[in-house]
C-alpha cells in the first residue's frame, strides 16, 4: 500500500480532511509533525491547508524553515512526490520548490466558494485519474491565493505544460495570472494548487469530484507511471 505522509504544522487545519481523503482512496495515511525530520518512508508527502504558524508574516513564510521542511526538501530533491494544497502550495512556493508566489486576493477579501477548474495535466502522481481537459467544481477558501510570477517564468510554465489546474473562464476567484490555480516542477513530482479537492471527496458533502486526486495518489507507482486502476 502506498504510504502518504500528511504534514501537520501548528495552524494546519485541513490535516484531518486530507488524511481522511487519502485513507478513503486506499492509501496508508500517516501524520508527520512539523518538528519531525523522519517522513516514515512515505512515497508521497502532502502539505495540507491551514494557517501554518498563524501566517502572520507571509503565508507559508515561516513554515519553510521548520525541521520537517528540510526532510521534504531532501525528499523532493530525490524525486519524491510532494503535493501542497492551499497553504501547502504557499509553503512550496516560499520554499522555492515551486516557482512564483501567492499574494493577497485581488479583491482583498477572503474568498470561500466552489469554483470551476480544468485539469491541464494528467501525467502527475496526483492527477492521473482524470482525463485532460476535465472541468470540475471544487471549493476554494483563501485570502492569499493570487498566483503571480515574472514573465519568463510564466512563459516557461506554459511552454513546459506545468500548469496543472486552471480556473475556467470567468471563474478566477483571486486575480491569479493566466487563471493559474496550480503548477508543478519540471519533473511533475512537486505539485501545488489552491482548490481543496479533499472537501469534495465524499458525495455526502455535495460532490465527490475531488476524490480523483487521491485515487491518483493511491494508484501511483513511484518511479513509474500510474498504476493500472482496473
Amino acid at each position: 500500500m502506498l504510504r502518504v505522509a500528511v504534514v501537520r504544522f501548528p495552524g494546519s487545519n485541513c490535516d484531518w480532511d486530507t488524511y481522511h481523503a487519502v485513507a478513503g482512496a486506499g492509501a496508508d495515511a500517516r501524520f508527520v509533525w512539523h518538528r519531525d525530520t523522519d517522513l516514515q518512508q512515505a512515497e508521497v508527502v502532502i502539505l495540507p491547508g491551514g494557517f501554518s504558524y498563524g501566517d502572520y508574516l507571509r503565508s507559508g513564510a515561516i513554515a519553510r524553515f521548520s525541521p520537517v521542511m528540510q526532510a521534504v526538501q531532501k525528499h523532493a530533491a530525490a524525486g519524491g512526490a510532494v503535493l501542497g494544497i492551499c497553504n501547502g502550495f504557499q509553503i512550496l512556493c516560499e520554499a522555492q520548490l515551486l516557482p512564483g508566489a501567492l499574494v493577497r486576493n485581488d479583491r482583498l477579501t477572503f474568498v470561500s466558494r466552489p469554483v470551476w477548474v480544468r485539469v491541464e495535466r494528467t501525467d502527475t502522481f496526483c492527477t492521473s485519474a482524470y482525463t485532460r481537459g476535465t472541468e470540475m467544481r471544487i471549493p476554494v477558501a483563501h485570502g492569499d491565493g493570487c498566483y503571480v510570477a515574472d514573465d519568463d517564468t510564466l512563459r516557461l510554465l506554459e511552454a513546459e505544460g506545468r500548469v496543472v489546474l486552471r480556473y475556467t473562464r470567468g471563474e478566477n476567484p483571486n486575480g491569479s495570472v493566466a487563471d493559474i490555480a496550480g503548477v508543478c516542477n519540471p519533473a511533475g513530482t512537486v505539485v501545488g494548487f489552491m482548490p481543496h479537492p479533499e472537501r469534495y471527496a465524499d458525495p455526502v458533502t455535495g460532490s465527490d469530484v475531488g476524490a480523483g486526486f487521491f485515487r491518483s495518489i493511491a494508484a501511483w507507482l513511484p518511479g513509474g507511471t500510474a498504476r493500472s486502476t482496473t
Partner: peptide, 15 residues
Amino acid sequence: YEQYDSTVQASTVLG
C-alpha cells in the same frame, strides 16, 4: 458568507 470558510473540515452537507 463568501468571506467565511464554510467547507473546512470537509463535513458540510448543506452550506
